[in-house]
Amino acid sequence: QLQPSSSATTTTITTNNINNDTRNGSFFNQDSLQQRLQLLIDGSMESWTYAIFWQSSFEPVSNTSMLGWGDGYYRGCEDEKKTLAVPGTEEYIAVQAHRKNVLRELNSLISGPSTSGEDSVGDEVTDTEWFFLVSMTQSFVTGIGLPGMAFFTGVPSWVAGTDQLVSTPCERARHAQVSGMQTLVCVPVGNGVVELGSTEIIFQNSGILNKVRLVFNFDVQDGGGGG
């Protein structure tokens, strides 16, 4: 059910699991990743809406290097009410009903069925929240799409502004744009890519790039404690 509204987006469920990667002890565990993603954008002067770590893996069957969901942190944005559909219209009601159903089902999968009668979903599910949720189902072949290209070339990509997002040959960038994002940044790190998204236009600066490299410096030998 958790499918992107855009039909052209490649959606593949992969079984990659960063917890299986013990090359550097707890450095790769889920809590550590979540903390690093939060550290990146919670303390930032810029208004980043979310941070995602795309984890590289190798698919032996297809002999392909892939990037799949590693972890993500959704911080939110000032204008959470931005939606594609106009509130009150049939389309809006249908979209919200679908999103809320998906969220309720996910909630019950994780927490079990609600016994209190209280609605576990509450407010509307915004386009940016939905974009983030749908991202969990996606993966990229190395070299394809903004995250795949950043990983393949080792060069960060920084796309800011509606026109730039629309003209980028990457389905994810276009999906981001129609979901209200205005800036998309992909930074290659040791074994994956850190992606940052914002509903505001943030122009390229070395500050956040350096911070990503510092926070996700997988080459650091710190005894596996995570630093």
Partner: peptide
């Protein structure tokens, strides 16, 4: 067959927790 892979499950838990916090705070 309906199990959510571990990494996604952990991310979902965090997302839903934070979402609840945001709703309470607004």
């Amino acid at each position: 067959s309906r199990a959510v892979p571990l990494a996604r499950k952990a991310s979902l838990v965090k997302f839903l927790e934070k979402r609840k916090e945001r709703m309470i705070n607004t």
